[in-house]
Every structure is written in structure tokens, then in C-alpha cells.
Simulated assay, not measured.
Amino acid sequence: MHTPRVNIGKGAPAVYKTMAALDSEVRQHAASAGLEAALMELVKIRVSQINGCAFCLQLHTREAVAIGEDPTRLAVLPAWEETNWFSARERAALRLAEAVTLVADGQVPDEVYGQVAEVLTEAEIAAVAWVTIVINAYNRIAITSRYPVGPTS
């Protein structure tokens, strides 16, 4: 068990409210750009896997299953490149999300961006990038605050 920490959202409620408003705006933009809810959840889950955010993994996996996502696809998501489970569009979104999340490991390489741009529109690229940015922020909020995760959370 980890030592409890300050919940930074509760410690700065106005800031957290602004974060929630940004999240809402990004979700609306992503939907208007044509990103399906299931694709947004895949991106959120993959980013949360990379960041090791148990709280967001639990939350977004539940949400994905609730909207009809196949649990087998979720099980193989960490190795998505090795499977035939994901469409070209999903693969492009996952590739971009990983590059944005791992930006410290070499920016968003031109090769990755080029591959993504062959499949996604400019609006979709912007939407995937924003969904990724927001879930990265939420991961950091949950990890810093050590949100509880378990069968009762």
C-alpha cells in the first residue's frame, strides 16, 4: 500500500474544474472531428498503459466495455502493432498517441507523423493529439494524488 497523498484536484478545485472543462471541450471537438467514442477510449487506455496510471486504466477500460469494446482487443492493446485486431485508423491514432505521450523520447518523429497523416485527416490528427494531451494530464493528476484503485473503487 502506498502512503496517502493530497488529492491535488480537491486541493485546487478551480484548477481541476478548468481541467474538466478542457476535457469536455476536447471530447466535443473529437466527436465533431469524427472520432468515435470507442476510438477515444482506446487512445485513453493506451496512454494510461504507457504512463502506468491504474486509476485511468480501470476507469477507461470500464467505459470502453460499457460502450461495446471487445475485451480481447483491450487485452492485446499493449501489443497492438503485433495484432490484426485494429483498423488502419485505430493504428494511426494509437501511433500518434504513443508518440505524443513519449515526446521526451524524440519528439513526434516525422516518420510517425507522416504515417499518421496518410490515414487521418487534419481534424482527426488534432483531435487525437488533444485527447492524448488531456489523458496524459489526467494520468499525472491521478498518479500524483495516488487515487485509490481496487475492487471497491
Score class of each variant (00 low, 15 high):
A54K: 04
E36V: 06
T18F: 04
A66N: 13
V26K: 04
A30C: 07
S48Y: 03
L35V: 05
A14R: 03
I50V: 13
I45K: 12
C53L: 02
R46H: 15
G34T: 02
R62K: 15
V65I: 15
A21M: 09
P71D: 11
R62F: 06
V15T: 04
S32G: 03
M40V: 07
I45H: 08
H60G: 13
V47E: 08
A66I: 07
E69R: 09
V65N: 12
A37P: 03
L35S: 04
L35Q: 09
C53R: 03
T61G: 12
G68W: 06
A33F: 04
Y16A: 08
R46D: 08
C56V: 09
A14E: 08
T61Q: 15
L59Y: 10
G68E: 10
D70K: 10
A20W: 00
A33R: 05
Q28A: 15
P13C: 06
A37M: 10
M40S: 14
H60D: 09
R46V: 09
V47M: 09
K44P: 01
R27E: 14
I45N: 10
A21H: 13
A66H: 12
E63H: 15
L35W: 01
S48D: 04
K17M: 08
V26N: 01
P13R: 05
T18H: 03
K44Y: 02
A14S: 05
L57S: 11
E36G: 13
E36S: 13
A31F: 02
A31Q: 13
V47L: 11
A30E: 04
N51W: 00
V15L: 09
A66Q: 14
A38W: 04
E69D: 07
A21S: 11
G52M: 01
K17R: 05
Q28L: 12
I50M: 08
L57Q: 12
L22M: 09
L42E: 09
H29K: 03
T18R: 00
S32K: 13
S32P: 00
I50E: 05
V47R: 09
D23P: 00
G34H: 01
K17E: 11
C56Q: 07
A54V: 01
L57C: 06
V26I: 12
E25D: 13
F55W: 01
A21C: 00
A38T: 14
E63P: 04
H29N: 05
S24D: 15
A31I: 06
V65Q: 14
V15R: 00
T72I: 12
D70P: 06
P71S: 06
M19H: 00
E63C: 06
R62S: 10
Q28T: 13
M19C: 00
A54C: 03
A33I: 06
A54Y: 00
V47N: 08
A64L: 11
M19F: 00
H29V: 01
H29W: 02
A64V: 11
Q49N: 10
T18N: 02
P71V: 10
V43D: 12
K44R: 15
K17G: 02
G68R: 10
K17L: 03
R62C: 03
A54P: 00
V65A: 15
H60Q: 11
A30H: 02
A14D: 07
L57P: 02
F55H: 05
G52A: 07
K44I: 11
N51H: 07
S24A: 15
L39C: 02
V47Y: 03
H60E: 10
E36L: 05
